[in-house]
Amino acid sequence: MGDTAGVRQLRIVVEADDYDAALAFYRDVLGLDEQESYSGEGGARVAILDAGRATLEIANSAQKAMIDEVEVGRPVAPHIRLAFEVGDGRTVTARLVEAGAELIAPPTVTPWNSLNARLAGPADLQLTVFQELGNAGDASAG
């Protein structure tokens, strides 16, 4: 039985100066399905995009620094960074760059055996696109 007082969904709300560009990037290029959208008075617009299973990752400053070092080689992450698990990290990274994301660091095999790329996307969001590689034997593909 579910706890009726528990959290049922994590929703991250991001203000985008260029709403249309951000929506096209995250919905059409990254591939997040649009669940709902609304418009209101004064030009108010919002779209709710399905990003799959959500988790909240809490990291201390040493962990944040270590991840930056592994993925990028220098400290670059802001206070909040979004990470999206994808099936093909190289293809998705190339597609996002082609759509205007700034490549901060190319896909890199991490010590925890995932293929991670770091990008700057619309709405001032820093993104990690990661692909789980599975067994250590799969890491040779990276």
Results as ranks from 00 to 15, higher is better:
V7F: 14
R8W: 15
L10V: 14
R11I: 15
V13W: 10
V14R: 05
V14H: 03
E15V: 05
E15N: 03
A16F: 06
A16P: 01
A16H: 03
D17T: 07
D18C: 01
D20N: 04
A22I: 12
A24P: 03
Y26I: 02
Y26W: 15
R27T: 09
L30D: 00
G31V: 13
D33H: 07
D33K: 03
E34H: 04
Q35C: 06
Q35H: 08
E36W: 13
S37F: 15
S37R: 09
S37Y: 14
Y38D: 11
S39C: 06
S39L: 09
G40Y: 13
G40P: 01
G42W: 11
G43P: 05
D50M: 04
D50G: 03
D50C: 03
A51M: 11
A54G: 10
A59E: 15
N60Y: 14
N60T: 07
N60K: 04
S61N: 11
S61C: 06
A62T: 13
A62L: 10
A65S: 12
I67Y: 13
D68R: 02
D68Q: 06
E69W: 11
E69L: 04
E71I: 09
E71G: 00
V72H: 02
R74E: 15
R74F: 15
V76H: 02
A77S: 12
A77I: 01
A77H: 13
A77M: 13
I80M: 07
R81I: 15
F84W: 12
F84T: 00
G87S: 09
G87K: 03
D88R: 02
G89C: 12
T91V: 12
V92A: 03
T93P: 00
T93G: 00
A94L: 07
R95S: 12
V97K: 00
E98V: 05
E98H: 07
E98S: 03
A101W: 04
I104F: 00
P106Q: 06
